[in-house]
Computed example of a mutant assay.
Amino acid sequence: MSAPERYGFVRANALSLAFGGLFLATLLGQAVSGTADVNAGRVSDGLPTVSFLDYVTSSSFGVDVMENWQSEYLQFFLYVFATVWFVQRGSSESKEPGQEGTESDREQQVGRYAGADSPAWARPGGWRTAVFSRSLGLLMGALFLLTWAASSIAGWAAYNSEQLASRQDPVSWIGYLGEADFWNRSFQNWQSEMLAVGSMAIFAVYLRQRGSPESKPVGAAHADTGQTG
């Protein structure tokens, strides 16, 4: 009997459903509070307020959302690939020192070592298995590039709105990519993700969260690597 049949769909998918719900709730919260914030500024300047729909379809809201998304996908893209080749002794998120690399076909259960319930593309070898073997990192990288491109377009529109409001000439999209505003926005988001990932990697060596697979068992030695609680 499969997990959804044994536990019910909601219980078997509670993690993704919970975070999906939290994502929608916080996105709505951002939209509502953002509308209120913009309108507070417009009222103080003696300008008419904007509607909720006008705000959520504006470049200002778009660039804020896309900047957050692209930095998160960058975090996962780098972490997925970095943990193939780099280790952190004592971290539950790391392989043991000496196990760096893509590992053998036997260890990865691909080709002739695939099991009866292995994904279809794990068996045939060749380009299909090669692509599937890297599909998570490739998807995270593609999503990062797409959201970064969307962020640049929304940021460009917001930048030109400010340029026109201050009676300055707008710039082309290519021109905006060379502006300090674009790179300041990008690096501002990226550095926070690097800090978060690095902090998690080292804090998980010495601290515990009972019952979490992101943590080692409470009684595990600090030097134990790759264990989950």
Rank of each mutant, 00 (worst) to 15 (best):
V65T: 10
M66F: 14
M66K: 07
N68E: 06
W69F: 10
Q70L: 15
E72L: 13
Y73T: 03
Y79T: 11
Y79K: 04
F81P: 05
F86C: 15
V87L: 10
Q88M: 14
Q88N: 14
R89Y: 03
G90N: 04
S94L: 13
K95F: 05
K95S: 02
K95Q: 03
P97V: 03
P97C: 07
G98P: 05
Q99K: 15
Q99A: 14
G101Y: 05
R106M: 13
Q108S: 09
Q109N: 15
G111M: 00
A114C: 10
G115H: 06
R123I: 08
P124L: 01
G126P: 08
R128T: 08
V131D: 00
S133F: 01
R134G: 05
L136K: 11
G137Q: 02
L138I: 13
L145I: 13
W148Q: 09
S152L: 11
A154G: 07
A157W: 07
E162I: 10
P170G: 03
W173E: 11
I174W: 03
G175R: 00
G175F: 00
L177T: 06
E179H: 04
D181F: 02
F182M: 08
N184Y: 05
S186K: 13
F187V: 09
F187S: 06
Q188T: 14
N189Q: 14
N189M: 13
Q191P: 09
M194V: 10
A196K: 12
A196S: 14
G198M: 01
S199C: 09
M200R: 12
M200I: 10
M200F: 15
M200Q: 13
F203D: 05
Y206H: 10
Y206C: 08
L207V: 11
R210V: 05
G211K: 09
